[in-house]
Amino acid sequence: MTLITLSPLRQLGAATTLALAIGLPALAQAAEPAPALELPTQKGTVSLEDLKGKVVLLDFWASWCGPCRQSFPWMNDMQAKYGDQGFEVVAVNLDQDENAAATFLDQIPANFTVAYDAEGKTPEAYEVMGMPSAYLIDRNGNIHSQHIGFHNDRKESYEEDIRSLLSAAQN
Rank of each mutant, 00 (worst) to 15 (best):
M1G: 11
M1T: 12
T2M: 08
I4A: 09
I4G: 03
L6A: 13
L6G: 08
P8I: 04
R10Q: 10
R10I: 14
G13S: 08
A14F: 11
A14R: 08
T16I: 08
L20M: 13
L20N: 11
I22P: 01
I22C: 07
G23W: 07
G23Q: 11
L24M: 04
L24T: 00
P25L: 01
A26Y: 02
A28K: 03
Q29F: 07
A30D: 06
A30I: 07
A36V: 09
A36H: 12
L39A: 03
T41R: 03
K43W: 09
T45H: 12
T45W: 12
T45S: 15
L48S: 04
D50T: 10
L51K: 03
G53F: 09
K54R: 12
V56M: 15
V56G: 15
F60N: 02
F60G: 00
W61V: 09
C65V: 02
G66Y: 10
G66A: 14
C68V: 00
C68L: 03
C68H: 03
R69V: 11
S71C: 11
F72D: 04
W74T: 06
W74G: 06
N76E: 14
D77I: 08
D77N: 12
M78P: 02
Q79R: 09
Q79I: 06
Y82E: 00
D84K: 06
E88K: 14
E88N: 04
E88Y: 09
V90W: 07
V90C: 03
V90P: 10
A91K: 03
D97S: 14
A100W: 11
A100S: 14
A101D: 12
A101H: 08
A102R: 10
T103C: 00
T103Q: 10
F104L: 04
L105H: 01
D106G: 02
Q107H: 07
Q107P: 01
I108P: 01
P109G: 02
A110M: 13
N111M: 11
Y116K: 08
D117E: 04
D117W: 00
A118Q: 08
E119I: 09
G120R: 06
P123N: 05
P123D: 01
V128N: 07
G130Q: 08
M131C: 04
I137F: 08
D138G: 13
D138A: 05
D138E: 10
R139F: 15
N140W: 05
G141W: 10
N142R: 04
I143E: 02
I143Q: 03
I148H: 06
G149S: 02
G149I: 02
H151R: 11
K155F: 12
Y158N: 08
D161Y: 12
I162E: 05
I162W: 01
R163A: 13
L165E: 09
L166V: 12
L166C: 09
S167T: 14
A168V: 07
A168W: 13
Q170G: 09
Q170I: 08
